[in-house]
């Protein structure tokens, strides 16, 4: 930037006007770009309050003209939606906690403990990252079939917690533990703590940011699962939310858009609210890991 000998009033005001304009241009661009991100959610929420006659009304109504909560009541009448909500919630929580334990144990061992074959085992585990769930769905279906576990939640819980989906989080934990200074643990060792206590009492409390990222990853992963429950579950009362959402039809298979959207709203909004409250931890936690799911 050039230095100026004397303050030039007109140039300064022109510059500030230009800055105002560029601000305006920036906010205008951002607002336009934001439309496809916000509008679907808005449309989902508002349409779920519309009676079926208004759903395809022309011109489209941005705000329901005759708001009704009937679609929300129909959701519970047509499907055991509360039960399905509980299914999704408890599976997500069990898998998230399970994954945090499995991944932090394995991640810690791979980062800190020396044992024969560690390299080879680590490479074998990483193969899990390479396998899309769709590749193994047929044999997994048949294995669980042989064990009599089809139409139960076990396949979803077991595979998500111990199988391929948890490899990414193990990897995140390992990277994190590698970056921790070893001195604290060395000191604890000299004080006579065993490995398990060191992991639980020293390493885990330090690993909070990484554990948060792991929790977010595995929660979103399980919450969104669609192929697996479609394949493994058959009874309506065992369905998870994503499967249930696709099943809102009238007695003869016709789509019931407003009811389906009401169910979608109830599925999406709570997670969205949690995200808005905790969005800094979300975004930074994910950026911190340098990866995505």
């Amino acid at each position: 930037m050039r230095t100026e000998t004397a303050p030039d009033v007109s140039r300064a005001s022109r510059r500030s006007r230009r800055r105002t304009l560029s601000y305006l241009a920036f906010y205008a661009t951002m607002t336009v770009l934001a439309v496809p991100f916000v509008f679907p959610t808005w449309w989902m929420i508002t349409s779920s309050f519309k009676p079926i006659t208004e759903i395809f009304a022309f011109p489209p109504t941005l705000v329901p003209e005759n708001p009704t909560i009937q679609p929300f009541l129909d959701v519970f009448a047509l499907q055991p939606f509360a039960q399905q909500y509980w299914n999704s919630a408890y599976i997500a929580i069990v898998v998230t906690i399970g994954t945090m334990l499995v991944s932090s144990l394995a991640g810690y061992a791979f980062a800190r403990i020396q044992f024969p074959g560690a390299n080879a085992i680590f490479l074998v585990v990483l193969v899990g990252l390479l396998i899309p769930a769709e590749v193994t769905i047929v044999p997994l279906f048949q294995m669980f079939n042989g064990l009599g576990l089809i139409d139960t939640h076990w396949p979803i819980i077991l595979v998500s917690t111990f199988g391929a989906p948890s490899v990414l989080t193990t990897f995140i934990m390992r990277q994190f533990f590698l970056s921790l200074p070893v001195e604290l643990e060395e000191a604890a060792r000299l004080d006579g703590l065993n490995r398990f206590s060191i992991w639980w009492r020293i390493a885990m409390p330090l690993a909070r940011p990484a554990l948060a990222a792991v929790a977010i990853f595995s929660f979103l992963h399980v919450w969104n699962l669609y192929l697996e429950p479609t394949v493994y579950l058959q009874s309506t009362e065992l369905f998870t939310l994503p499967v249930a959402l696709t099943r809102f039809t009238d007695a003869y298979g016709g789509a019931l858009w407003n009811v389906q959207l009401a169910a979608a709203t109830m599925t999406a909004v709570p997670v969205l609210l949690v995200f808005i409250v905790a969005q800094r931890q979300f975004v930074e936690g994910l950026a911190h890991t340098g990866l995505k799911g």
Partner: peptide, 11 residues
């Protein structure tokens, strides 16, 4: 499809 899968799944 659902019936067939139920039969395949032993259910």
């Amino acid at each position: 499809t659902t019936i067939t899968t139920q039969i395949a799944g032993g259910n």
